[in-house]
């Protein structure tokens, strides 16, 4: 019961904040709204029995990625977008219509699907996730991500630095 109440509260919070993210003209407000989305999603992860992912969500997304976004927004002193949305109006309408069609279509599929409720006791604890992560199935992928991160590190420095 408590689970249900928490879930729907967090889901509503995430929805409202997500709407703010895309409706807000000031990017700083968008960023703060996105942080709210990330935090409520983290709560939902915890309710769905994934405490490890919930914490990693906060550490990586809310703690690192979003701070980076805010940093760039503040360093570049980004102003509000112009009131005129720009682009052609028919295109924008088409985009909205397509998005709505997509949501309705996939939503209908999901609403009709029957999901197994899974095992009664489910907790993806740190140990279990780590055992799978370092098992032969995923070990090479895991090592590959470390190379990806190294490449991103070097790449971002090369791109952002004025003169090396």
């Amino acid at each position: 019961m408590i689970e249900q109440i928490l879930f729907y509260t967090l889901a509503a919070l995430a929805l409202v904040a997500a709407i703010v993210v895309i409706a807000q003209r000031s990017p700083i407000y968008s960023a703060f709204a996105l942080i709210v989305v990330l935090c409520s999603l983290s709560g939902i992860f915890a309710i769905l029995g994934s405490p490890f992912i919930a914490v990693i969500q906060i550490v990586v997304y809310a703690g690192a990625v979003m701070v980076l976004f805010l940093f760039v927004l503040m360093l570049l002193n980004v102003q509000k977008e112009a009131d005129d949305p720009g682009g052609s109006k028919p295109l924008r309408t088409a985009a909205a219509a397509l998005a709505a069609a997509f949501a309705v279509q996939v939503g209908l599929v999901v609403a009709r699907a029957r999901f197994a409720s899974g095992p009664e006791q489910y907790e993806a604890s740190t140990r279990k996730v780590a055992e799978l992560l370092f098992s032969p199935t995923f070990l090479y992928v895991f090592e590959a991500t470390s190379i990806l991160i190294l490449a991103a590190l070097v790449g971002s420095i090369v791109l952002a630095k004025r003169d090396l």
């Binding site: 990625v65 980076l68 971002s156 420095i157």
Partner: peptide, 14 residues
Amino acid sequence: MTVAAAEAAVGLAI
């Protein structure tokens, strides 16, 4: 998440 973090770093540099 790993890919998203890497993408954010490179993207913001761009």
